[in-house]
Design a protein around this nucleic acid. Structure first.
Lengths: 351, 351
DNA sequence: ATCATGAATGGGAGCGCTCCCACACTACCT
DNA sequence: AGGTAGTGTGGGAGCGCTCCCATTCATGAT
């Protein structure tokens, strides 16, 4: 089936016009068939489809983009250097979800890293040129100007972790508050009483919400949160080590640690070991993310699973509908949307 | 400076024509300035640049692509599922090199995963639509039809590991043969005499070359290669475990292992430990790739470093020149190019 | 029989650029 | 003075589509 026609002599790919001539119809009709318009008779549609197959016609995206003023592409923007992207499984899971949801579509996904200043400038240019129909924003810090730029350029965008409670962009998030609560409740029900928390980067809203969940869970159990037991981290292993040392110094009698990420927990674990603490006997440890690290740790790490793949899917759904709504410059949908997906505690031997 | 003009009212981004009017010149002249043609007087150029800045003009890529028949984008095609891409540091290093070399350019990089059948079909469509000016191909197996498709579509392409000695595509490779030799010579000079080799996937040409290097190094040292000491692996940790078990069964007296990758070495290490062998006392271990794993292994793993970042850079250089050569459909450059970059042995405690 | 109505279709206009030819003008030879 | 190269410049044509208006023809209501 198909594959001869205009191929051979490198030069000329067939155009709409040629397909139309071959099928004995007009250009407009072929365009309608290509784009799946219902206003075409079955017979005509079949004829056109045959001609398309015979000629091996493939639409010229540039022409389409120019005429229709859309690109059929969306960008996943990671405002981090590549290294962090690859270091953290979060991103790859996210990408999996995004990719799977997108594969039913004609949309093309671009992966853009904007870690450095230079890349940021390139990105700004890129967005100003409207080279994508929409943007997926992952792991944005509170003071990042990117969301505002997007808003100003009126480019549909969905952000993966809202920057604050009043996030203006459409957002997708996991239930950080609930996840933290479930972790702490789990530790409490295991009889732990002096539960420390190594936070994530506190300029990330989700990390703040986890602190809130941690505090509220303790409070509801009748225990006032002891601020000496809370030490800021930054999601990294090194940060986990640092914070753990501080905590051990300050509160040598702690009997549990809730870490802001699995990687952080790994760092904490190392310091605990070096300090002669056994896990879980002396100190129970709970992480966050339920990444591969958690499963492979010794002992395996109890962790809070975020449905990252599903979050990726949700982001695509929201973004595509934003793009669709946006096309006719109708009234900007007033109701901003925020999806929050549930987390799940995965108990393992570390607690 | 700049940023008012046509911005405000979402709708109208300025066009070439508008810039021309503002600068009091013709459309062609503005185009020349934008594209850096030398045939413009300094005064005119300055006037145009001022107009561009005032209006915040950004070229419309779709229009440019349509008129000039190029996209200013290249694709990095990974014929693997995402998971493998992220699991192996090889890819992220490659991406770093590619990205850094590309950042001097107007070119846009797309990352395309084509692991499954479905993705393959999408990719074929994508390439047929000529949505990129060139393609970077990473880790392609011997029987992959992708290179032929590229050739047939006459899309400039550079492959990261040639598929065979007679690779038809322009290629970049590291000196697998020399790298393997240096590993074996290192082990020999350490007094090891029964050196096993766990290969990579043998449908990868580079893995074959490593076997060649292994054999030749032994032969030149006057030792006939013992085929019982060679066991095929597949670059994975699991494969390393499997192969190591087989080797220990077959040749319990082996005193060194050269693994096809660091990950494979990690698998081998595990089995060696379980069998009570001490590293490096009983068995010396050498890996390949010099990845993070090698540095963090216990004991740290001697490994062969491939200059992957540099390979990425080299790929871009070659691809860009292919694209440039290609533009005027002149005589297809007859001399295919193959760059081979040197490897380097990084000795550590495991040998 | 008459007139709306709507479904299916053809094709003009135009998206914003690049390419290239034509033109003016300058300089420098004869 | 007339030619002959350049240089710098303007603008027509056209890239391959989508959008939309006009046209045709069949259908059903009157």
């Amino acid at each position: 089936m198909a594959s001869h026609g205009a191929r051979g002599r490198g030069g000329g790919r067939p155009t709409l016009e040629e397909v139309a001539a071959r099928a004995g119809v007009g250009r407009g009709t072929v365009s309608r068939v290509i784009n799946g318009s219902p206003r075409v008779s079955d017979a005509t549609r079949a004829a056109v489809e045959a001609a398309v197959a015979e000629l091996g016609y493939v639409p010229n995206t540039a022409a389409r983009a120019l005429a229709a003023n859309r690109t059929d592409a969306i960008a996943l923007v990671v405002p981090e250097p590549e290294t962090r992207f690859f270091a953290e499984p979060y991103f790859s899971d996210m990408l999996r979800g995004v990719g799977s949801q997108l594969s039913d579509t004609e949309m093309q996904l671009l992966l853009i890293f904007a870690g450095g200043d230079r890349e940021r400038r390139r990105l700004a240019q890129y967005l100003a040129a409207h080279r994508v129909d929409g943007v997926l924003l992952v792991s944005v810090h509170a003071d990042d100007p990117l969301p505002d730029l997007l808003a100003q350029l009126e480019i549909p965008a969905v952000i993966s972790g809202p920057r604050s409670a009043g996030e203006t962009l459409t957002s997708v998030d996991s239930d950080n508050y609930g996840g933290a609560r479930s972790a702490v409740e789990h530790l409490l029900s295991g009889g732990r009483t002096r539960i420390a928390h190594i936070t994530g980067r506190l300029d990330v809203y989700g990390a703040q919400r986890r602190v809130d969940g941690y505090r509220d869970a303790l409070r509801e159990a009748g225990r006032e949160a002891d601020e000496l037991l809370v030490e800021p981290g930054d999601f990294t292993e090194e940060g986990g080590r640092r914070a753990m040392s501080v905590l051990l110094d300050r509160r040598p009698d702690l009997d549990a640690v809730f870490a802001g990420s699995d990687v952080t927990a790994a760092g904490a674990r190392q310091v605990l070991r070096e300090a002669g603490r056994r896990i879980p006997d002396d100190v129970a440890l709970v992480g966050y993310d339920d990444s591969a690290i958690a499963r492979h740790m010794d002992p395996p790490l109890t962790s809070v699973r975020q449905p990252i793949v599903e979050m990726g899917r949700a982001m695509i759904d929201l973004l595509l509908s934003e793009i669709a709504d946006h096309r006719p410059p109708a009234s900007r949908g007033p109701e901003r949307r925020h999806a929050v997906l549930p987390t799940e505690l995965v108990p393992r031997a570390s607690s």
